[in-house]
Write a protein that binds this DNA or RNA. Structure first.
Lengths: 109, 109
DNA sequence: CAAATTAAACGTAATATTGCGATAAACTAT
DNA sequence: ATAGTTTATCGCAATATTACGTTTAATTTG
C-alpha cells in the first residue's frame, strides 16, 4: 500500500488535505515566512539562510508551486518567487470554514 | 536521508508544520469533520462511514491524538473521541497569525 | 565565445507514511 | 465462564518523502 485512497473522499477534503500537506514541513513554513517577510520577491537567498542544500530547497519550492501557494518568474539568471494571492485567499477561506465549523461543547470527553 | 532536519528550524515552525502535517490527509480531515458534525462524541462509527479498514482508522485517530487535535475517553466497550478545544484554539490563532502576515502586493511576479 | 552564476532535474539512499490482515486486550452480555 | 463487541497494536508490503551530490539548461558577464 502506501497509496492514499483519494477516491473515497470528497473533492473538498482532498483539496484541503493537499494544501495542509504542502504546509506540513518546517522548511516550507520557513520558506513562506521568508517570502512574506521580504515583502518583495526573493529567490535563492533561501539557500544561504536555511541550512538546506540548493537541491532540497528547489524541491520544496516545487512542491509549494505545485499546489499553487507560490508562483515564480524568471528574472535574469535567478528566479523570483512570491505568494499566489488567489490560493492564499482560498486557503484562508477554506481553513476559516473548517476551523469555525467547530463550536466547543462543555461536557464532552 | 528521509529525515526532516527539525533542528535547523524554530520551535514555532516545527510546531505549526506538525499540526499541518496531521491535517494533511483527507481521511484525517474527514474524521475531524465527522467529529465536529456529530456535535457529540462519536466513536468507531467512522469505520462504517469512511471506506477504510478499522486498523487504518485507528492509526489516523492515533495521529490526530498525538498532536493533541483530538482526545478520547473510554466509554464502556467503545472509545469516545472529540476535539481538544485548547489545541483547536491554538491552531486557529497560529494559523491566523500565519495567514494574516501576508498582505497582497500589487506588482509582484 | 568562454567562464561564471543560478536554479531545475536526475539519481539515489534513508526514512516515513499508508493501508490492511491478524492478533491482542478490555469490556459486555448471555 | 463463554461468546461477542470494540479498539489498539503488530507486522508487513507498497509507495511517498526528505535530503543531497551531481548534472544540465539558461542566462549573464568578462
Amino acid at each position: 500500500m502506501g497509496l492514499t485512497k483519494t477516491e473515497i473522499f470528497t473533492e473538498e477534503q482532498n483539496k484541503l488535505a493537499l494544501l495542509f500537506k504542502a504546509l506540513g514541513h518546517p522548511a516550507r513554513v520557513a520558506i513562506l515566512q521568508r517570502i512574506i517577510l521580504a515583502n518583495t520577491c526573493i529567490c535563492g537567498d533561501l539557500v544561504g539562510e536555511l541550512g538546506l542544500a540548493q537541491a532540497t530547497i528547489s524541491q520544496h519550492l516545487k512542491e509549494l508551486k505545485s499546489v499553487g501557494l507560490i508562483q515564480g518568474k524568471i528574472e535574469g539568471v535567478s528566479v523570483c518567487y512570491c505568494i499566489n494571492p488567489d490560493t492564499w485567499k482560498l486557503l484562508e477561506n477554506n481553513f476559516g470554514d473548517f476551523i469555525n465549523s467547530y463550536k466547543a461543547i462543555p461536557d464532552c470527553c
